[in-house]
Amino acid sequence: MSELQLLWFVLIGVLFAGFFFLEGYDFGVGMQFITNAHTKEEREQLYSSIGPNWDANEVWLLTAGGAMFASFPFWYASLFSGFYIMLFIVLIALIFRAASFEFRDQVQKYVSQRAWERTIGISSFVAPFFLGMIFTAMVKGMPIDAHGDIYGGFFDYVNIYSLVGGVAVALMSYIHGLNFTKLKVEGRLYDVATKQLKFAYPLLIAGEALFAVLTFFMTDLFQNNPVWEFIICPVIVVTTLLSWFASAKGKEGFAFVTSGLILAELVAFLFAGLFPRVMVGNNPKFSILIENASSSTYTLQVMSIVVLIALPITLAYQIWSFVVFARRFKSSK
């Protein structure tokens, strides 16, 4: 494995982590359209809080996918064709979510506006849930053949491990979204978020413990890369505790950043467990390795230069945009 290959493996992880950190909160806010918002005004508050940024957040997924295609075509091909139906469901959810944000604004009739807002709520749950399932099923191992194609049965995709993984990512996104809501709004939504976080954090800690146990018994991640896995695992729990503590103490900014970090650390946990593989075969002989899944050295070099120039600029204006919209929306009550 060359240093360039390693760099790109890490970079793909960073891009997915960035995606979950950013889109995670707007998934969470989206879910609140169903769970927490009762009045038109509250839904308006929710939309306003993520309106200017959710689109750019979603581009992180696009960038991660594109970067995977460019740097590890054999990983991309195997993963995307192998998880065909699940990715299809994610795509449908993202399409309807994006359209609903725009359409809900165009509708005057209450009934149809509610229909689009329910769509936002459902799709904001479906997308992170299925992405969580995909990533956990992927590290658990798949029936891969010599060509790198996955011929999985229903239980390869849907099993206790991937279901817990899906719920975990959805719950982390929801918590992350509640923290974001607390940063952005006042009034009843703020109070409801505070109340829900009191229960959500202990639930998440329990979920993390369950996930760690399942990972230990159902996957080879801990055996494959014990040092990193045994470091990252407690880090996730500590971050969750910190976030819980900050949230209880009313330190909203810190709670938000740490709840995002939980998602990023989960990506790190899964990627470290994969290493030096990119796809885990049920038959280890057919696992796909970083070493032989990547693009040529030349392509990786070109892409590295592009990233080196473009990523700082991209981050700069994205952060600037967050600064521009960093305000709290007051409730009229």
Binding site: A56, V59, T63, A67, T299, M303, V306, S321
Partner: peptide, 23 residues
């Protein structure tokens, strides 16, 4: 074709799509 075809797609997301969606 991934070695060739993937690069423009990734560059598109990175240099163009981010700018488009942020602005």
């Amino acid at each position: 074709v991934g070695d060739i075809f993937g690069a423009p797609l990734a560059v598109e997301a990175l240099v163009a799509f981010f700018a488009e969606s942020t602005f």
